[in-house]
Design a protein around this nucleic acid. Structure first.
Lengths: 251, 251
DNA sequence: TCACATTTGTCCGTATGTATC
DNA sequence: AGATACATACGGACAAATGTG
């Protein structure tokens, strides 16, 4: 009989994953299967530890993974414990932001991808006309935004929300996820660079024109306004970014 | 002088973040600033613990976050420790897969979003003609795939890679990220459902036609072949998914 | 080949802050 | 207000893995 030398390398994949990896995977599986749903409460760390036959530290690391992945959120105090949630969209957006901050995405790439995706969303909107409710939400959004800028206040939240509402109206969740991610990066950018109130005014005008074109079924107009608007924003971002970089080098 | 009762609720937001959150954020900041680069080694857990003035458990939870976010990878043993990497794209893809498994994305949504994005990629390819190297990589890819299916073996890897190569050739990193994410979901689907070899043969034929159309500058042809191909894949996925669900209900 | 040092992975006990009842 | 239950965090310990001499 031969030695086990070869066999041991063949059979090796034992203990491939760490305990906390397996436990977090197991809990994820229960969530995928619908046995655990958002709103449900998981047992406390100590109970989970004894249930899985591991120490509390191992459970804690498993919970950290689930928390960052957007499956649970920890609640302190008496009736607390791990609570099942679904904030995966948030998790995706944060990862996109990480990728951007790692320099893997430039402003130009962001602008052109954003333009392409929003065009895609508009096309989808014209392909299957949107709900009344979606249109109302869009109109409500720009009216809120206009109130703010008329009072001399920036309407960052509303203007970001407008594009998410557009994506939502397209009816494809994947578009919504992509738009949320892109707008998270755009918002981060804007918060670093800052934009003046005058650009916000033009932004709202563009948003109004887009809604009007969509409801009027004027596809060409909607696409043209969108393209002009996003291109202007992109140019402005590039300017500000260049300014910031030169300042940084000088100072 | 009044009591501090009100003030204490006003000033409260102290200790908003947990220790491991702050520590992982601090290390992330060093990576963003370029002080830590992929390939660099972080101090061991014990050293980090004494450096930050916290216990080892806290450091471990911070490292878990960084690991799952795609910033570090743990190496066991003598010369081991936390190693700085950049697998954020992988992290994003995994989150998309989570979203899909949570039922937030349907097959139809996946197909139509995929079609829209790949069209976008092709348009971008025709707007600024791709590098010779990219074209060579694409040709190499289909030739490898053809070898496999000629030998009666599935060419999953190559056929998935084809679409990533297309996105890469577009020159926009954001497109590449989106395509990687979508193809991760597609690959997961295919691994559950399975597809027959005959579909793989037609897939490769479609890929070849797309490359030819791109190099010939035939935009309409490329888009038409892509649309037909992705629509067929989508239909097939829907069929198989329906079959699987009925089986599941029956058994 | 064989120890040896280093480092992660894991467990236990304990203490503290905080939220709920 | 007090008791309870929970997450957060610390310190010590041992096993397992891995590179080095």
């Amino acid at each position: 009989m031969q030695t086990m030398g070869n066999a041991s390398t063949l059979f090796r994949p034992i203990k491939l994953r760490r305990a906390f990896d397996e436990i977090s995977g197991e809990i994820k599986r229960l969530i995928f299967k619908g046995i655990l749903k958002p709103g449900d409460r998981l047992p406390s760390e100590s109970e989970l530890a004894s249930h899985f036959g591991v120490g509390r530290q191992t459970i804690r690391e498993a919970l950290r993974l689930l928390e960052l992945s957007g499956f649970i959120s920890m609640q302190k105090g008496g009736a607390g414990g791990p609570l099942v949630v679904d904030t995966i969209l948030n998790t995706i957006s944060n990862s996109f932001l990480d990728a951007f901050q790692m320099g893997r995405i430039t402003i130009d790439e962001l602008t052109s991808a954003r333009l392409a995706i929003e065009k895609m969303v508009l096309e989808s909107l014209f392909a299957h006309s949107p709900d009344e409710a979606d249109i109302r939400a869009l109109r409500e959004n720009v009216s809120q935004a206009r109130k703010k800028v008329d009072a001399g206040v920036q309407a960052y939240e509303e203007n970001t929300q407008f594009h998410k509402l557009l994506a939502r109206a397209s009816g494809n969740h994947l578009f919504l996820i992509l738009m949320e991610s892109i707008m998270t990066v755009v918002a981060h950018f804007r918060s670093i660079l800052g934009v003046n109130l005058e650009l916000s005014v033009r932004t709202i005008a563009a948003h109004e024109q887009i809604i009007d074109a969509v409801t009027a079924g004027n596809r060409k107009k909607a696409l043209a306004v969108l393209e002009a608007h996003l291109t202007e924003i992109g140019e402005r971002f590039k300017e500000l970014d260049g300014l910031l970089k030169r300042e940084h080098e000088a100072g």
